[in-house]
């Protein structure tokens, strides 16, 4: 569905952030992108929706060449790619509802959005999504009144209301505590499965990636150095990605020892995340 061919980004300073990345993501597949800081993870997902302009190569979504689109075409293509950010990137002074509905901006006209008169179907969907992420009662709160985990849930709802085919997720847990991180990762993966969404998740927590995501892509200095199943990560592979270090403790010991697999446990954690 998403195909990157020789995607390259060279900044005006001469730094080569991406050196011809080839990657294919089939429909509905979630993959984690790991790699050290500065490996180009952020640049890679921003080159897909062209928040950063790639300097070479192609990115195609369902056969449509994103890299060749004009302004209008790019706007339409961006509607199909929901994005979730590290620092949540909610508009702090807008309400939760406005933040969620801003995901529909690509679909509604300027004056409707200016007067906040979104179509009823959008409002219905917004309430449904807020309910799904557990924030139905928060819709009129200002975004800056929420906790980190709650903000990220709003960010997720904003991305999903776009009705995307693909989620671009940039370090969703980097500003969250370990427990909330797991809840957010679990929520993202569940939602992707429910809706058959593909997702690229930038993450630097290797253990968290292994815990939730079946396919891992390792990026180092702008090049893909690993692409395989998450249990294929060995100390050698991690050394290849990150450099020399003792990796034994980082790798998941028991592939079946997933955290909180039973539903009761999940629900309890989710409720706690609302506090």
């Amino acid at each position: 569905m998403l195909r990157l061919e020789g995607l390259t980004k060279r900044y005006p300073t001469g730094d080569e952030a991406l050196k011809g990345v080839d990657l294919e993501v089939p429909k509905g597949q979630v993959l984690a992108l790991i790699g050290p800081s500065g490996a180009g993870k952020s640049t890679l997902i921003r080159c897909i929706n062209r928040l950063v302009e790639p300097t070479g190569g192609r990115a195609t979504l369902d056969g449509m060449n994103i890299t060749a689109l004009g302004v209008g075409g790019l706007r339409q293509a961006r509607r199909r790619m929901g994005m979730i950010f590290q620092e949540y990137a909610l508009v702090e002074r807008l309400t939760v509802m406005e933040n969620v509905l801003s995901g529909r901006l690509g679909y509604v006209g300027f004056w409707r959005s200016w007067f906040r008169k979104f179509p009823q179907s959008d409002v219905d969907e917004a309430f449904r999504l807020l309910d799904r992420v557990g924030l139905a009662e928060m819709c009129d709160k200002r975004a800056d009144e929420l906790s980190g985990g709650q903000r990220q849930r709003v960010g997720i709802a904003r991305a999903l209301i776009q009705d995307p085919a693909l989620l671009l997720v940039d370090e969703p847990t980097a500003s969250l505590d370990p427990k909330t991180s797991r809840q957010i990762m679990r929520l993202i993966c569940e939602l992707c499965e429910e809706r058959g969404l593909a997702a690229i998740i930038n993450i630097h927590d290797v253990l968290l990636a292994q815990m939730f995501v079946p396919r891992i892509v390792g990026l180092r200095l702008g090049e893909v150095v690993y692409d395989g199943p998450s249990d294929g990560l060995s100390p050698d592979v991690l050394t290849e990605i990150y450099g020399e270090e003792d990796w034994e403790a980082t790798i998941k010991k028991d592939p079946d020892g997933d955290d909180g697999v039973d539903g009761v446990e999940i629900d309890r954690e989710r409720l706690e995340g609302l506090i």
């Binding site: 706007r75 990137a89 909610l90 508009v91 901006l105 690509g106 904003r158 776009q162």
Partner: peptide
Amino acid sequence: GQAEAIRATGSR
């Protein structure tokens, strides 16, 4: 960041 997020939605 906030402005970027709005741009990413495909807004005019």
